[in-house]
Write a protein that binds this DNA or RNA. Structure first.
Length: 618
RNA sequence: GCCACCUUAGCUCAGCUGGUUAGAGCAUCGGUUUUGUAAACCGAGGGUCGUCGGUUCGAAUCCGACAGGUGGCUCCA
């Protein structure tokens, strides 16, 4: 398995070389950056100067690549002393390679830590000691600085396809010149490539932006502004249900809801430190009455802190837990906005706990249990990333407290048998945290829930409580979110479910289709609707003058969980034959006739207990 | 913010290299039909072709700016 993967990566990386040699044939002036193998293919960062690649060039490049492959050039490894290599790069007119080689010569490794991993296969070194020689690979007349590995010859590659070209800063640094990243997918066989492209097509179909429109969940308006979604009635059902569930879990764990204004004086964030750190992301609000400078709240913690700080606190009160899910505003850079997954109005199911150091374990355990409950009901797998500090001095607070807290966090993860991994250097500057990585139906991982310890803000705001011995002590804070940003979570969840929401979340739970528009039929449907509403169900009647077949189809397209057709038979028997959305059925069909009242009660029960499968028998 | 690409009816899209009143399907509305589990039939309305400016005898089509979007880069407390 591992060996097979290695071969696959060597093949993909070889394709990067083949692509580079093809590009150089077409554009002899091309300057090359790095060209690694990646998860599903390969890319090469290329600088063509004023000439720019576009998708129209793909056919041409792919054709040239096929020629290189057809020529079956051997990949030959060679070594050069580092100084000779630098000279080679200069003479070959490859300034990016020259820069890499010079870094290599100077430090024995490339400077950018993050890139080191990605650039595997492109950069020769990587050890800490100074480098004497570097290796090159040559295919045909194309020589590239490279550590390998490669397949034997250009003929020995699998199926590939160029997918996109995009901008990429040299070495990932925004201050560096921008290159073009030419990206393709590659697999051993045509079949695997086809399957992968199909998966991409499936992902495209599930795209939350597309489904958001098709299922009428949210809209954007140029007049309102980019990154500011407007939720329709259907989308608002999802919002209320999801945030309501989060609130329910928190309430049960002793969290209290608070309400705060959305604008605040700039001074609050100057004191919290957010003004310095995130100044450019804050929306400014100007008062026409006073000279006060206001900002739209980009987070809730400083407000919650003000509630805590409003009067003296006793140790007997702790932990104090404030929650709310109102919108926060961050002025993200334009190019970073993306559907619902990156917006400028963000609703986090946010909460802040003020407690003693001794209480951290209990609080983390309680929060982790809520997370387990939440994602259990949502039917999503997750694992936890314990984000700890590293040895650098980028962190505030007592190192001893950090150590203690990190030990507690890992202990909690162990005790609750959470699938977790530790990442050092990922902590926030103010404390260690647990980030929850949720896996969706297509196997992609997303960071959603989080809980973070904060030693810094209590310090900045001088928060205290009176301990049992009468002394003033400093509380610690825990920030937590179960869904994280509701908007981002919804984008993940829409794609996870492909818009087929479980009954408790479905904006429309039951659709009633009338066979005709006769009075008796309409009356029956109306009565059914009234009964459903009494049970708190969301039901729509389709009484349009269309064929039953067409109305059924419409209900399917809207992914309504239950559809019932009503006509003479139903009226005389006071029963219905529910049509059940396929993913809800336990074994295919859920069949028979059922009394109206029993049907509605069953559905209401399913909604209340938030189950994923129907309890109507098959 | 940076690079590439995109923007034609509510939605999905046609409209070749600039040339008379800009098309289709779905959706909407009206009529016929009174329908039994994934699309009945007929008809109608709907677009200053994202906005502004320029080139041209003539612009949906070419150029520029701006806005919005897509894919990445950077960023994501």
């Amino acid at each position: 398995m591992a060996e097979k993967d290695e071969n696959l990566m060597a093949m993909r990386h070889s394709l990067a070389h083949i692509m580079a040699s093809a590009v150089r044939r077409l554009w002899p002036e091309a300057k090359f950056g790095v060209g690694p193998a990646v998860a599903d293919g390969f890319y090469y960062d290329i600088d063509l100067g004023d000439a720019k690649l576009s998708e129209e060039d793909f056919a041409k490049i792919e054709g040239e690549m096929r020629k290189v492959i057809g020529e079956d050039q051997a990949f030959e490894r060679s070594e050069k002393p580092i100084d000779e290599a630098v000279k080679w790069a200069r003479e070959a007119g490859q300034p990016y390679k020259e820069e890499l080689l010079n870094d290599l010569k100077r430090s024995g490794t490339t400077v950018a830590k993050d890139l080191d991993r990605e650039e595997m296969g492109t950069i020769a070194g990587g050890s800490d000691s100074a480098v004497d020689t570097v290796s090159f690979y040559t295919n045909g007349d194309f020589t590239d600085l490279c550590r390998g590995p490669h397949v034997e010859s250009t003929g020995k590659v699998g199926a590939f396809k160029l997918l996109r070209v995009s901008g990429a800063y040299w070495r990932g640094n925004e201050k560096n010149p921008q290159m073009q990243r030419l990206y393709g997918v590659a697999f051993n066989t045509d079949k695997e490539l086809r399957q992968h492209l199909q998966m991409l097509e499936e992902a495209r179909k599930r795209d939350h932006r597309r489904l958001g429109q098709e299922l009428d969940l949210f809209v954007f308006s140029d007049l309102v502004g980019s990154g500011l979604p407007l939720f329709t009635p259907r989308g608002t059902v999802l919002r209320d249900e999801l945030l309501g569930f989060s609130e329910e879990l928190q309430r049960a764990a002793g969290f209290q809801k608070v309400a705060i204004p959305h604008i605040t004086k700039q001074a609050l964030y100057e004191k919290s430190g957010h003004w310095d750190k995130f100044g450019e992301e804050l929306f400014l609000v100007r008062s026409q009455e006073t000279s006060d400078q206001f900002v739209l709240k980009p987070m809730n913690c400083p407000h919650h802190i003000q509630i805590y700080a409003a009067r003296p606190r006793s140790y007997r009160e702790l932990p104090i837990r404030y929650m709310e899910s109102t919108m926060q505003y961050r002025d993200e850079k334009k190019g970073e906005l993306n559907g619902l997954s990156r917006v400028r109005g963000i609703s986090i199911d946010d909460a802040h706990v003020f407690c003693t150091l001794e209480q951290i374990e209990g609080e983390f355990t309680a929060i982790m249990n809520m997370i387990k409950d939440m994602y259990g009901v949502l039917d999503m797998r997750f694992r936890a990333r314990l984000s700890f500090r590293d040895d650098s001095d980028a962190y505030l607070g007592e190192p001893a407290n950090w150590e203690k807290a990190q030990a507690i966090i890992e202990d909690v993860a162990k005790k609750l048998e959470i699938d977790y991994f530790i990442e050092e250097g990922e902590a926030a500057f103010y404390g260690p945290k647990i980030d929850i990585m949720v896996t969706d139906a297509l196997g992609r991982e997303w960071q959603c829930a989080t809980q973070q310890l904060d030693f810094v803000q209590p310090e900045r705001f001088g928060l205290t409580y009176v301990a049992a011995d009468g002394s003033e002590q400093r509380p610690v804070m825990v920030h937590k979110a179960l869904l994280g940003s509701f908007e981002r979570f919804l984008s993940v969840y829409i794609e996870h479910t492909a818009g087929r929401f479980p009954v408790w979340l479905a904006p429309e739970q039951i659709r009633v289709i009338t066979v005709n528009q006769e009075d008796a039929t309409v009356e029956f449907a109306d009565k059914l609707a009234a009964q459903a509403r009494e049970l708190g169900l969301r039901l729509e009647i389709d009484n349009s003058n269309e064929s039953v077949g067409k109305k059924i189809r419409a209900a399917e397209v809207w992914k309504v969980p239950y559809t019932v057709v009503v006509g003479e038979k139903e009226i005389s028997s006071s029963s219905v034959v529910p049509r059940i959305r396929q993913d809800l059925a336990v074994n295919g069909d859920a069949g028979g006739s059922i009394g109206v009242e029993q049907f509605l009660k069953t559905v209401a029960n399913e909604a209340k207990s938030r189950v994923h499968k129907t309890s109507l028998h098959g």
